[in-house]
């Protein structure tokens, strides 16, 4: 009990500080992609830039718009962070250890991922602003639509490993093969599908239409100022970091790796996935709302169904035994 509690506290602290680092990392990465240098004045190579940003946000006045639903308006941003953090509890850190070990870890992770849209909707509704409400509506529509391919993609490792326990999936990959690499046919496309659906669930480019600034000002965050805005912003990064961790657990073997399996491999894979996600973010443009739905329902969902079928067929061949 005490071990689990202290582990949970450690995970929260690590994820939050990793998120702060991720802010800096993303800005550096984006700058390099655009032949700039990025933050460099605050601390060595700009490393303390997130701290400076945080201090700036904390100082700012928090404005509540007239006509806003004050309680929901105040409640929504902290909730976004809490729900985004919740899924981190199920990530197996090293062999046999996670904050919460559950036989149905995959299901719970997806359940909490689906919850993340509730505070976003609360924020959009409570803002009493048409752009915020439109953004919230898009976020909810996107979240439930992409929940379907996300579940289908997550089914593939579940079927291949024969368990919904995230640690069990990693163990299976450690003794057999990483699902992102082998079996190549349901594995790799499922990994890509998972990444796409995960990006869409956390509202990242090319799926960030809920806050398309050219159409919606800033979407649900339009009316938020100061640290309240900071929370929503932070939650998006936490969501991406945790999503990358889940992706590397389910498809890239988590803590498994050559020489010494352990936490460092998980961190390295998460970092690689995170880089990949931001590479996409700074390369591609945003999809239009209707294109987004077309992609989901006409391409990703049928593809996901096919992949589930193929992975069941792979299990029947018995080659992985």
């Amino acid at each position: 009990m005490i071990f689990a509690a202290s582990l949970a506290a450690a995970v929260v602290i690590v994820v939050l500080s990793a998120t702060a680092l991720a802010l800096w990392y993303e800005r550096k990465l984006a700058a390099r992609m655009q032949t700039r240098i990025g933050p460099q004045f605050v601390g060595p190579i700009g490393l303390f830039q997130p701290v400076a940003d945080l201090l700036k946000l904390v100082q700012k006045e928090e404005i509540v718009p007239m006509g806003a639903d004050r309680v929901l308006f105040a409640l929504a941003p902290p909730l976004t962070v809490i729900f985004a953090l919740a899924a981190a509890a199920f990530v197996p850190l090293w062999p046999g250890v996670a904050v919460v070990r559950s036989d149905v870890g995959v299901l719970l992770v997806i359940g909490f991922g689906g919850l993340a849209m509730v505070p976003v909707w609360m924020a959009g509704w409570a803002s009493f602003n048409k752009y915020a409400l439109l953004g919230a509506m898009r976020a909810v529509a996107q979240s439930i639509s992409y929940g379907v391919p996300l579940v289908l993609a997550a089914m593939v490792p579940v079927i291949l490993a024969g368990t919904m326990d995230l640690d069990g999936i990693t163990q299976f990959q450690a003794t057999h093969h990483w699902f992102g690499l082998w079996p190549i046919i349901p594995g790799l496309p499922a990994f890509i599908l998972f990444l796409l659906a995960m990006l869409a669930e956390s509202n990242r480019i090319p799926f960030d239409i809920p806050e398309a600034e050219s159409e919606l000002v800033a979407g649900v965050t339009t009316e938020y100022t100061g640290m309240q805005f900071g929370f929503v912003y932070l939650a998006e990064y936490v969501h991406t970091v945790v999503g990358a961790a889940i992706g590397s657990v389910m498809f890239l073997g988590g803590w498994d790796g050559p020489f010494a399996p352990g936490l460092h491999w998980l961190l390295l894979k998460t970092l690689c996935l995170f880089t990949f996600i931001y590479w996409i973010r700074w390369t591609l443009v945003r999809l239009r709302a209707d294109q987004l739905m077309t992609l989901c329902w006409k391409w990703l969902v049928p593809a996901g169904l096919g992949l589930v079928f193929l992975s069941a067929a792979w299990n029947q061949t018995g080659w992985s035994r």
Partner: peptide, 8 residues
């Protein structure tokens, strides 16, 4: 926990 996940 399975029912809890389904509930969520």
């Amino acid at each position: 926990p399975f029912l809890a996940g389904i509930q969520l």
